[in-house]
Amino acid sequence: MTRSIDYGTLMHRAMRGLIQTVLTEVAEHGLPGAHHFFITFDTRAPKVEMADWLKSRYPEEMTIVIQHWFDNLVVTDEGFSITLNFGNQPEPLVIPFDAVHTFVDPSVEFGLRFESQDSDEEDEDEDDEDEPQEEPEKPRTEAEVVSLDKFRK
């Protein structure tokens, strides 16, 4: 049996741990200085909890901002819950770390992006072929540091 080190999975786990540590510090002590976060997540992911009207408005992906006003930030090993203000309407959210696609702190030009190797478009193209297909392996999730140029003012 051949064994190898799965660096992608290890890096993925470490990056999720970094987000957990940062959010735990913010939950305990508040946001320091000019720090603020843009967090994009998959609204279809298991264990995501959000108001029905938000889910219908963001059926696939949503980006939240943790900056001026937030409440009830609770961080667990699996994810975090937070109450945010949407048009003067406070709404609670529950976001598992596995649902997070990006985590960006533009105040210090730091960002993380979590991607899978296979895209949905590739899967759709395969469905159009007439030849029988073997069951593909589950895609591994890779982690990548992102450029923050698009967040600069």
Rank of each mutant, 00 (worst) to 15 (best):
G79F: 07
G79E: 14
G79Q: 13
I82S: 03
I82L: 05
L84T: 00
L84D: 02
N85G: 07
F86M: 03
F86T: 00
F86V: 00
N88R: 03
Q89A: 02
P90N: 03
P90C: 04
E91H: 03
P92Q: 05
P92R: 07
L93G: 00
L93D: 04
V94G: 06
V94D: 06
I95Q: 04
I95D: 03
P96R: 08
P96V: 15
A99C: 08
H101N: 15
T102I: 04
T102P: 02
V104G: 04
V104F: 10
D105S: 11
D105C: 13
P106C: 10
S107Y: 10
V108F: 07
V108C: 12
E109T: 13
E109L: 11
R113N: 09
E115R: 10
E115V: 11
E115F: 06
S116D: 15
S116K: 15
D118S: 08
D120Y: 08
E121T: 09
E122M: 06
E122S: 05
D123V: 02
E124L: 13
E124K: 15
D125Y: 08
E126Q: 09
E126D: 11
D127R: 12
D128Y: 04
D128Q: 08
D128W: 05
E129C: 06
E129W: 06
E129F: 13
